[in-house]
Simulated assay, not measured.
Amino acid sequence: MLRKLYDWTISLAGKKSAEVWLAVIAFVESSFFLVPADVLFLPMTLARPERAWRYATVATVFSVLGGILGWYIGHYAFEAVAKPVLEFYGKLQTFEQLKAETGFGMIVLLLITSGLAHLPPIKVVTILAGVANVNLGLFIITAIVARGARFFLLAALLKIYGEPIREFIEKRLGLIAGAIAALLILLYLVLHYLHASS
């Protein structure tokens, strides 16, 4: 099922309505959709590098709007909507583990690591922010920075290096970013533990 969903998302890049689909995928990824917007963003930007910044802006804006929807789902409809979605994607256990440690600092960190390496998936973070009652204004600002950084970095790499950088982005960038994200989370947890024990 995931492979079909992934292939379908990639196929949207060749359509005249690709930019609209980028907005839709970026929006739904942030609250309930499984396939990241990168899958559509990469081929679109490679095909039209002169539109790299425009595509990055569209992806960022709609990703943040989808994140706001995720926040509202977590805040007002966790049991009715969010919990079944998380169970469907097998993310409920991850969510419950994160919820136990959540404060604004952790949400900011998770938005950054999700932006870097989809660790954890953005939908988990946005719903978690709503459940934890993180200030919506601060959440939006943080989401703009975190999501914007990802899409504009990808746009810059694709615009400068073109097709040769694609394999690096798809295979190696995720590993590097994942390692950095894991280190950031570990550092936060260590500092949090030291602060709590002092």
Rank of each mutant, 00 (worst) to 15 (best):
L2E: 11
D7V: 04
D7T: 07
W8V: 09
K15R: 11
K15H: 11
A18G: 08
A18P: 04
E19L: 13
L22N: 05
A23F: 01
A23K: 08
V24C: 07
V24Y: 06
A26K: 02
A26E: 01
V28F: 08
V28H: 06
E29M: 06
F32P: 02
F32R: 00
F33R: 01
L34N: 08
L34S: 07
P36H: 03
D38C: 11
L40V: 03
L40A: 02
F41A: 05
P43V: 02
P43R: 06
T45E: 12
L46C: 09
L46S: 11
L46W: 04
R48T: 05
P49L: 03
P49H: 05
A52R: 04
A52F: 03
W53F: 07
R54A: 13
Y55D: 05
V58L: 10
A59H: 06
T60Q: 08
S63E: 05
S63T: 15
S63F: 03
V64E: 00
V64Y: 01
L65V: 10
G66M: 00
L69Y: 12
G70F: 05
G70H: 00
G74A: 04
Y76E: 12
F78N: 07
E79I: 10
A80W: 12
A80L: 12
V81Y: 09
K83Q: 15
P84K: 03
P84G: 12
P84Y: 05
E87T: 13
Q93Y: 15
Q93W: 14
Q93H: 11
T94D: 14
E96H: 14
Q97N: 15
T102W: 05
G103W: 02
G103S: 15
F104M: 14
T113L: 02
S114K: 02
L119V: 14
P120K: 01
V124Y: 04
I127Y: 00
L128K: 08
V131N: 01
N133V: 12
N133T: 11
N135T: 15
G137Q: 09
G137V: 09
F139Q: 04
F139T: 01
I140T: 09
I140Y: 06
I141G: 15
I144T: 13
R147I: 06
G148M: 03
R150W: 02
F152H: 09
L153P: 00
L153A: 13
L154C: 05
L154Y: 10
A155S: 09
A155K: 03
A155G: 02
A156H: 11
L157T: 05
L158P: 01
K159R: 08
E163P: 09
R166C: 08
E167C: 07
E167N: 15
F168Y: 10
K171T: 11
L173D: 09
L175T: 08
I176T: 10
I176S: 13
A177Q: 00
A177R: 00
G178D: 00
G178M: 13
A179N: 08
I180C: 05
A181I: 13
L183V: 13
I185A: 03
I185Q: 05
L187D: 09
L189I: 11
V190K: 03
V190C: 04
L191Y: 10
H195D: 10
A196G: 12
S197F: 04
S197G: 14
S198N: 14
